[in-house]
Amino acid sequence: MMPRFRSLLAGVLALSGLAHAETLKIAYSDWPGWIAWEIGIQKGWFKEEGVDVKFEWFDYVPSMDAYVAGKVDAVCMTNGDALVTGATGKPSVGILINDFSNGNDMIVAAPGVKTMKDLKGKKVGIEEGFVEHLLLLTGLEKNGLKPEDVTIVNTPTNETPQVLASKAVDAIGAWQPNSGQALKALPGSKPVFTSADAPGIIYDLLYVSAESLEKNKEDWAKVVKVWYKIAAYIRDEDNLDDALKILSARVNLKPEEYEPFFKGTYILTLDEALKRWEKADGLGSVYGSTKNVNAFNLKYKVYKDSQDPEKYLSPALTKALKK
């Protein structure tokens, strides 16, 4: 009778939702829109929703490497880097938009360079093929300049503060915290173009492997639901101090030090995200933005074969919340 009893008990547990589910592993890294997951973790909202999730902390590039190697089920990436990861390693499906960069990505210029137009004939330290390269080209175009009007000095993003301070270049392109470090490293330097000048040029999403999404769709739906609870909490001004305290602690900063990074990231509410999921050209749509970065990646030979944005994006779980 004992085996029979165990079988019945297992069935009851499964029906009641108490049976052990597969743990979803998510790689995240140092970006405000991704550190925001900490709010849901610390407040126990994933447990309340009944989903077993393990968030694993990485530096950004290693987080993508872990995803490609199959060590995690999902990873937080920009829409452009998702194309690169898919074209050269392992495809993924973006199931929710965390945010778009709203000033954290910057072209920082040395003293004497007051506008993008002043960069004509000058050197810019940029990591070629990365998103700041695209930001630079967008800034040049918006100011009537051509790519050949500047000389690009290929520079790893984490080295841009030192390169600017050394005066080897006249400007650099970097995202936070590197862009902020560059401003501190060279007194008198200033941002002359940022992602706030081209909102939607960089979207940050949660990307899941197709296999895990198909196998665990109900659990991923719960993760998306928790995210929009986090987003609503963050966007409520009454919660700002608590949110800053949680986010800043994850990267060992004081809340007042972290606040500028937070403000340079536009975390989307559910209604705002639904608008960004509408298929359209231009940066106001995640589809248009991803199409834009695909063209950039092809032009600068980041990968050889064109990628289809629609294969990397799935708004279904977000749209289900609206219903």
Rank of each mutant, 00 (worst) to 15 (best):
P3T: 11
R6Q: 13
L8C: 06
L8K: 07
L9T: 08
A14K: 14
H20P: 04
G40R: 01
I41L: 11
Q42K: 14
F46K: 00
V51W: 00
D52H: 07
W57R: 15
Y60C: 07
Y60E: 14
D65W: 09
A66G: 00
A66C: 00
C76L: 10
C76G: 15
G80R: 03
G86Q: 00
G86Y: 00
K90L: 12
V93R: 05
N104A: 11
M106R: 15
M116S: 07
K122H: 10
G125S: 00
E127Q: 15
G129R: 08
V131L: 11
K142E: 10
K146R: 14
N154V: 12
N154Y: 08
T157K: 10
N178E: 12
S179Q: 05
Q181R: 15
A185R: 04
G188E: 01
K190Y: 03
P191N: 10
I202M: 07
Y203Q: 02
L206P: 02
L213N: 08
L213M: 12
E214T: 06
N216C: 06
K217G: 02
Y228D: 06
E237T: 13
D242K: 13
L247F: 07
A249G: 02
V251K: 03
E257L: 09
K263Q: 14
G264I: 10
Y266N: 14
L270K: 11
D271Q: 14
E272P: 10
D281C: 08
V286Y: 02
N292D: 14
N294P: 09
K301D: 12
Y303A: 09
S314T: 12
S314A: 13
A320P: 01
